[in-house]
Design a binder for these strands. Structure first.
Lengths: 160, 160
DNA sequence: CTTTGCCTTCGAGTGCGCTCGAAGGCATAC
DNA sequence: GTATGCCTTCGAGCGCACTCGAAGGCAAAG
């Protein structure tokens, strides 16, 4: 769409790469927090992205469909996940894993789209989420205690 | 049903009490692990049970309906939650809060019903659940890290 | 050429865990 | 008596987050 096909074959997907992702370099501190591998390829297929994130290809398409992430297409029309997309997806999956609803994530990302003046709202949202995470941590500790108790009752050891 | 009504009025529900719950005394260690109050009344209405557990009355009826817990009825046909029922409900809510599905909980409770010879299976189940809890704890730590990172970016402090 | 396999879009379906509402019973207050 | 409020059972409904399947495109292998 943006570039005309010069090369053919397998390289085409990679060749199409210099597109869109270098606008902002993706905060390296966040990138390392998200624990993406250092040798993360520039462009990944949906199968590779699924493998790396632990989500299914179906779920990745779903996240894109509902507007959580933008994903480029290569010359064949296939999805091509760049560093930015991967970072966002892992970020989203962290929020999901900590119980943030998809509608709240959508709202947060909409605030991001609206620019810097929404930072106070984003801050409030994240602070509230932090409270939720801490509550969950406490609940998990309680659950761990009763689970370990039962394991003890059944004569087992905690490490299976 | 079991006793004929001698008293009338408010005491009737309490009067019906000496029924069923004293068969086994409920493991005091588990009871304290479940953090039920020391002054837990012998018999609670569904509203009181809901209040104490943080579940809704609807959910308590649902858990009973699907066979997770047995609950006695008073002379008026109202549910009356004894210590044993409360302990089980809190136990269930701990398992739920740590991500055990209702069908797995049902299975576990069915094993309990089947008697001592199912202890190895219960042990395995709880050990597996322990693994799940630990995985969730790790995921929550990662989520907490990115959340705190964002809070920092937005100029906020972790304690709101 | 055909086969294989991964990819596309689209819309519909699924499973879970509640959640609700209707219709009615019981008990205390007035 | 009636009104209020909490309780009962029953079946149905709902929201969420996927999850799936059909129909078809693209490209490397044989």
């Amino acid at each position: 769409m943006t570039t005309t096909s010069l090369s053919t074959g397998a390289d085409q997907r990679a060749a199409i790469a210099a597109y869109g992702s270098a606008l902002e370099p993706v905060d390296p501190e966040l990138l390392s927090l998200l624990e993406l591998p250092d040798d993360l390829p520039d462009r990944l297929s949906i199968a590779e992205a699924a493998e790396l994130t632990g989500l299914t290809a179906h779920t990745l398409r779903y996240y894109e469909r509902i507007g959580l992430v933008d994903v480029h297409r290569d010359a064949a029309g296939y999805r091509s996940y760049d560093r930015r997309a991967m970072a966002r997806i892992v970020f989203i999956s962290r929020l999901r894993a900590s119980g943030m609803s998809i509608s709240t994530i959508s709202h947060y990302l909409e605030l991001v789209r609206q620019g810097d003046q929404t930072e106070p709202q984003r801050l409030a949202l994240m602070q509230q989420h932090r409270g939720g995470i801490q509550r969950q941590l406490r609940e998990l500790q309680l659950a761990l205690a009763v689970t370990d108790y039962k394991i003890g009752v059944y004569g087992g050891s905690a490490a299976p």
